[in-house]
């Protein structure tokens, strides 16, 4: 009886261990099953490089180039803002700050990560969007720039906490060696610690970017949602995630439009897969 119980528990634990693998595979299979149906009628090149996303006009056009560029523009903007500030903040926490400040900062950053994106989006809509509108004298403040700024704050906690971990795990002897040779604190950080922690910091950046690309609610609320190819960062854009969120509710199950949204899901899945593989490589390169 006891043996039997143990057998059950053992198998249960094993099954749970398998669960994550199973779910990831299932997600991919289901996305493929629905998404690939689209390519029976729409060629892949039209889907990826088509310049028009008119899913409900006659004839419908399913080119996701504007959406990809929209996601890319918002992401690059957010990366430009969040990477230097995030890494700077990580350096401050790991190397410069006194112990007490360090604890407070770490707790604060974890709280920042916990703010729901729908609340951030709402705040962005009410405060940031009108500011952008008046500062740049635009017809609308719902632009890629507003999205980038808001998303930068969402990527920051990820970047800071992983980069800080990486800096923290640099052996103390490196730092002591550099300081003993007469390097200033900054020279130690810049020449020794940053390069020793570089792979961890790159992983932090990748995962931060991953968070930005996958973000849906805030982006949908403040980037204006117009599916045209953007020519500047001060124009409304629409991202891949926001397209699914905005249109899935209206798409008829089994229609081309529905399959196209799942095909976008495949693209998003592949992007997050690539980002995680890269980050994993950086993290385990030791």
């Amino acid at each position: 009886m006891r043996k039997f119980k143990e057998f059950i528990v053992e198998k249960l634990i094993l099954i749970c261990g398998l669960f994550c693998i199973l779910v990831v595979v299932l997600i991919f299979i289901f996305l493929l099953k629905e998404g690939l149906t689209l390519f029976k009628t729409v060629p892949l090149s039209h889907f990826l490089f088509g310049k028009n996303w008119y899913p409900i006009s006659e004839p419908a056009q399913f080119g996701i180039l504007p959406l990809i560029l929209g996601s890319l523009l918002v992401t690059v903007g957010a990366a430009i803002i969040s990477i230097p500030i995030g890494v700077g903040c990580a350096i401050y926490i790991a190397e410069v700050a006194p112990l007490k400040t360090k604890e407070i900062l770490k707790a604060g950053i974890e709280l920042l990560a916990a703010i729901p994106s729908v609340v951030l989006g709402f705040i962005g809509m009410i405060t940031l969007v009108p500011w952008i509108k008046t500062i740049f004298k635009l017809p609308t403040g719902l632009t890629a720039l507003s999205g980038s700024i808001m998303l930068a704050f969402m990527a920051m906690p990820t970047i800071v906490s992983i980069a800080e971990d990486a800096l923290y795990s640099v052996p103390k002897s490196y730092k002591e060696g550099a300081l003993a040779l007469g390097a200033t604190r900054w020279q130690t950080i810049w020449r020794v610690e940053l390069s020793a922690a570089s792979s961890g910091i790159l992983a932090a950046v990748m995962l931060g970017i991953g968070r930005v690309i996958g973000e849906t609610m805030a982006v949908m609320m403040i980037t204006g949602n117009s599916a045209v190819i953007p020519t500047s960062i001060l124009e409304p854009v629409r991202t891949l995630t926001a397209t699914i969120a905005a249109e899935m509710g209206e798409a008829v199950v089994g229609s081309e439009h529905y399959f196209a949204l799942f095909a976008i899901g495949i693209v998003l899945f592949l992007i997050s897969f690539a980002i995680n593989v890269t980050a994993d490589m950086f993290l385990h390169k030791k």
Partner: peptide, 22 residues
């Protein structure tokens, strides 16, 4: 298993939403 947990953590939440949807 660890990698797939991280991947699941990284999959955009909207994609998880449409997975539950179908």
């Amino acid at each position: 298993v660890r990698f797939s947990a991280d991947l699941l953590n990284g999959v955009p939440s909207i994609v998880i939403g449409i997975f539950a949807y179908i």
